[in-house]
Amino acid sequence: MQVYLPIAEMPVNVLLMLGLGGAVGFLSGMFGVGGGFLMTPLLIFAGIPSAVAVATGANPLIASSITGTIAQARRKNLDTKLGLYLLGGGAVGAFWGVLIIRYLRQIGQVDLFVSLLYVVFMGAVGSIMLVESLRALRKVRRGQPAAKRTGRHGWMHGLPFKTRFPASKLYISAIPPVVAGVLVGVMSGVMGVGGGFILVPILIYLLHVPTNVAVGTSLFQIIFVSAITTVLQAAMNQTVDIALALLLMLGGAFGAQVGAAAGQKLRAEELRLLLALLVLAVGLRLGVDLVLPGEIFSVRSAGF
């Protein structure tokens, strides 16, 4: 069954797009990453023009992250206060990110820069998580309890503006969450993604937020980042395809429910291991393209 997309100006297979949305939604509900880092590459792989794929990728994430956030909130896995601090930084960061992208476009190396960012970040984040989660799993298997986070005092605890985040059981300075927000905002502005795959590890490993709360809070933040991205893309580039987004979000809405339930059944360590493998796989796939391209020439409409 085919449907013609009004903005992308091409027909797509309805079932393929529903399935694609469902798969990304499943991951979104399970890991608390928006899935933007998967959505955009998958859309391009399915033949959607890259301008439309980049602009439309964020739109269905709004739906799946709302569904995911509500599901997580019911399980008390949402720290609204922490989410708002992250958002404050994120708004500033996203603005900087858009400025950086504009500069890169002027010098003509957006594609390379974005690919390299993906590869470097996903490689680093994926490897760190992989090592850590394997170590944690081995401990669990030996019968020792998983490492407790309480009572740790790093350099971050010497910072001022100490604030209590009851949902995360944290009493830390407000500066690290805001800085993390800015960093993720810059990334999402530059890479066109919600930034969950960077935010979740930062929350878990740097701020010591419990894994489940990190997942819920990251989803909460992604709602707003992807809403801002969608409006800006529609206004600036006019390449958001609502018909495509609708297919993706209908598939994704149900995928997110299944994912959230599956995430609840898995151990936190196993969840982190799976996410690590997924992040590494996508990073590796993009890295391969940089080293062994299939076609040396790329043809693109100059209008986009």
Binding site: A63, T67, A253
Partner: peptide, 12 residues
């Protein structure tokens, strides 16, 4: 586009 997504997410 945002409102549509919010509606789908909420309805689900």
């Amino acid at each position: 586009a945002v409102a549509l997504a919010a509606f789908v997410g909420g309805a689900t």
